[in-house]
Design a protein around this nucleic acid. Structure first.
Lengths: 145, 145
DNA sequence: CTCAATTCCTATTTGTATACTATGATTATA
DNA sequence: TATAATCATAGTATACAAATAGGAATTGAG
């Protein structure tokens, strides 16, 4: 029942791009230093975010990445699902592929559904902007997003 | 973010013992047939439940297992935590052992706490008796618990 | 007192996913 | 043309999941 590093790092990556946004493209080298995650691992993670259109990349010198949209456009759920895969606590809740023949008589299925909903409820109702705002309130900071 | 088979099977095991309780000890062979899980794997799982005092075991012929208490005494959370370990979505929320030095400046910590609470809220407010009751309502059955 | 059924205990195996690292090609700017 | 970056793909070490396997100890029944 753990969120993997991919999901957690993806979130930190997006937050880092949001917080340090100046309009310019931000190279992963900078993110790497700030977040203490290797550039190579970040590359691997950001590929998925680029393909999904959440982040724009520019190659070459003066290249880097920036969010494609605004921080309030991205929920934690969007980012985690992309990098982690489904957040369902059991496989039988995932799409139609993993349909379980015991489903009708399953005594625990309702519980797993409830758990799934509780999880989704948290991650789908929190955006990057929310996280940054809450953090600023807590710290008394004033990051420019 | 998946519940492992150990946790899921432990829950099914406890529910099986609850539903099929007659006062007698129930051998794992029967549970195995009903739940379609090998006796050997069930043995491994139930060991933990016995050590925690949730289940009583009796060796030998006419031996088997039965719940130590009543179905309403056991929450899903108790059973999952025992078999899965902590249900925290990130390690830094687990006790003091995994304390993270970034905690004070961590922008995502609040989110993980919220998620953790949402998960706990579901599993700690559902007992075996609840699951059986809901199931009977759904199916129109009348299991003797 | 022995047999069969069962729990109890410990090891071993197999597969898969996680968490990276490594190498090199491609592209853009100065 | 040199440099700094993304982009693409492959490789690797480790740990965890999900069991299986073998046998010792215990109990009740006949």
């Amino acid at each position: 029942m753990k969120i993997s590093t991919k999901g957690r790092y993806a979130l930190r990556l997006m937050l880092d791009l949001a917080i340090n946004n100046t309009g310019e493209f931000i190279p992963l080298k900078l993110v790497s230093e700030r977040q203490d995650i290797s550039v190579k691992y970040l590359e691997q993670i950001i590929t998925v975010l680029v393909k999904a259109g959440y982040v724009r990349g520019l190659r070459g010198s003066k290249g880097g990445y920036k969010l494609a949209g605004k921080p309030e456009d991205y929920t934690v759920g969007m980012i985690l699902r992309l990098t982690e895969g489904s957040l369902a606590p059991v496989a039988c809740l995932e799409g139609d592929t993993n349909y379980c023949e015991r489903a009708d008589e399953c005594i625990t299925l309702g519980l797993w559904k409830e758990l799934y909903e509780a999880i989704n409820n948290v991650v789908d109702n929190t955006t990057l902007a929310d996280l940054i705002e809450r953090y600023n309130d807590k710290i008394g900071n004033d990051y420019c997003i």
